[in-house]
């Protein structure tokens, strides 16, 4: 159909080259409009994504604004040496992996349970209503979640300190300066905000299951619990595996808002709320320690990249169609 495919067999070398060249120009002319269309998007990706990728060299430099980014002196691996000499690198890596690991596990289990239950609601209108409400927290910004948290945990006027704890005869707790509660609080907030999303994904997969399996099982006298265990869960297993592997591929990246807004950026809580993302942010914006911050950022990008590749490799071994590439 296109001119590009109609290159004749070469008679002589030069003649062929001329023809090839003219074919190239013909193709370019034919597809000129399509190439123009991609310009804004490609330009954007170059600025927003590719320039920063080359910007990772900052981690190996002693950034001096007067000299500019390219003109600053090279430091080699000094920034990384400093980073891994302190206990910071260990603490933020541990926090990031432990939090994300438990989020993946707990959210998946709860979301499957809720999705199965949603599918058991006989009145479809009510099922849709429940679904919308459970998804509501996913829709709002983390700043608002910070406010909701404050209305619960504010020391002087929070719902917990003023209404719940007095009822139980417990003294008020200064939530925002007691690190020991925060692993639980953050896990709870994360469940509250994100389970609805995962639940919708699993529900879509459950709805796709053929009803005949259940009918056959009912005739054979299988209980509801047996049906869930031997039909529903095995049949949505591919979705569960994919969602889990994708999440594991992103285990080095945290939900910055959760760890920044919900604890109100409180200093005393840092040992238990600091993750790689908050560490990088603080180094850049409050401490002005660009070297350390960019080293931690590159560490995250590289490990994250490897994890995505590994996760995708495992997915593609399990099911070629579900893999990203």
């Amino acid at each position: 159909m296109e001119a590009a495919n109609k290159v004749d067999m070469p008679v002589a070398d030069t003649e062929a080259r001329v023809k090839k060249q003219s074919a190239f120009w013909k193709t370019l002319k034919r597809y000129r409009a399509l190439f123009i269309m991609i310009i804004p998007g490609m330009l954007y990706l170059i600025i927003n994504n590719y320039l920063p990728m080359f910007g990772v060299i900052i981690a190996f430099k002693d950034i001096n604004y007067a000299k500019g980014i390219l003109g600053s002196d090279w430091l080699g691996f000094k920034n990384f040496e400093y980073l891994f000499k302190t206990s910071d690198a260990w603490i933020i890596t541990r926090n990031t992996i432990l939090y994300n690991g438990s989020f993946i596990f707990i959210n998946t289990v709860l979301a499957i349970a809720v999705a199965i239950l949603l599918n058991e609601v006989r009145i479809k209108l009510l099922s849709r209503f429940y679904q919308s409400i459970i998804l509501l927290p996913f829709l709002i910004s983390m700043v608002i979640v910070g406010y909701l948290g404050l209305s619960m945990m504010s020391v002087e006027s929070g719902f917990l300190n003023k209404q719940i704890l007095p009822m139980l005869g417990i003294d008020p707790i200064s939530w925002y300066s007691e690190p020991k509660y925060w692993p639980y609080i953050l896990t709870f907030v994360n469940i509250w905000k994100n389970v609805g999303y995962l639940c919708i994904i699993f529900l879509a997969s459950i709805i796709g299951i053929d009803h005949e399996y259940y009918e056959a099982a009912t005739i054979d006298g299988a209980s509801k619990w047996q049906q869930i265990r031997s039909i529903t869960v095995p049949l949505i297993m591919p979705t569960i595996t994919i969602m889990t592997l994708l999440a594991i591929g992103r285990i080095f990246y945290s939900d910055f808002g959760l760890f920044f807004q919900v604890p109100l950026n409180s200093g005393p809580l840092q040992p238990v709320t600091d993750v790689i993302d908050t560490y990088v942010y603080r180094g850049l914006m409050t401490l002005g320690d660009i070297g350390m911050s960019s080293a931690a950022g590159l560490y995250q990008s590289l490990v994250g990249f490897v994890l995505v590749l590994v996760a995708n490799y495992i997915v593609s071994r399990k099911n070629r169609d579900q893999a990203l590439f």
Partner: peptide, 24 residues
């Protein structure tokens, strides 16, 4: 592939911030 690769790897906060503030 150029579009897709942006999903796999990113420069992170510090270079992005410097690109937008120091370059642009």
């Amino acid at each position: 592939f150029l579009v897709f690769f942006t999903l796999l790897f990113n420069g992170g906060l510090v270079p992005t911030y410097l690109v937008y503030t120091e370059v642009f």
